[in-house]
């Protein structure tokens, strides 16, 4: 019957759409992103907070920092170990992690995240603290 052809065509189109990730990648291996640390970051051993925390929550910390600097004019952050940092993306974070392309962008691109930090930072001259 004519309907049967139409149904089978529709079914094939549906399967092609649903199984898109399988044929799009065609079985090739995709290596996970490898983040490169600068010498300075390696020497420091630990970031502002623990590595696991920073890996999943760094955006929240940056948000709090921005809030604190912009709204409350408080620029000094003290971590639980009592170490003090100047709250600044350009001067503190990117001082150690000066290799944005090999550090920030690696994971952001892999996870398809486009943070709006870079709308203002990185290409601009360093802030005067």
């Amino acid at each position: 019957m004519n309907d049967k052809k139409l149904i089978v065509t529709g079914l094939v189109i549906f399967l092609i759409i649903v199984l898109f990730p399988f044929w799009y990648n065609r079985g090739r291996a995709v290596p996970p992103p490898e983040v490169k640390l600068t010498e300075q970051a390696k020497a420091a051993k630990e970031c502002v907070l623990s590595k696991d925390y920073m890996r999943s929550e760094h955006m929240q910390l940056l948000d709090l920092w921005r809030e604190s600097v912009v709204r409350e004019a408080d620029r000094i952050y003290t971590n639980p170990k009592g170490k003090q940092f100047v709250m600044s993306l350009s001067n503190t974070c990117l001082d150690c992690h000066s290799n944005k392309a090999d550090f920030c962008d690696k994971c952001h691109n892999y996870a398809s995240v486009r943070p709006y930090c870079w709308d203002c930072h990185i290409d601009n001259p360093k802030e005067n603290s």
């Binding site: 990648n25 079985g27 090739r28 696991d52 890996r55 929550e57 892999y110």
Partner: peptide, 25 residues
Amino acid sequence: TKIDINAAKQLTMGLVTFHPTVPAG
């Protein structure tokens, strides 16, 4: 309760590329 999103993507990419891996953490 955030997860390590890149590890999660490593797992899902492993599934669709037929190279299944289960990253820790």
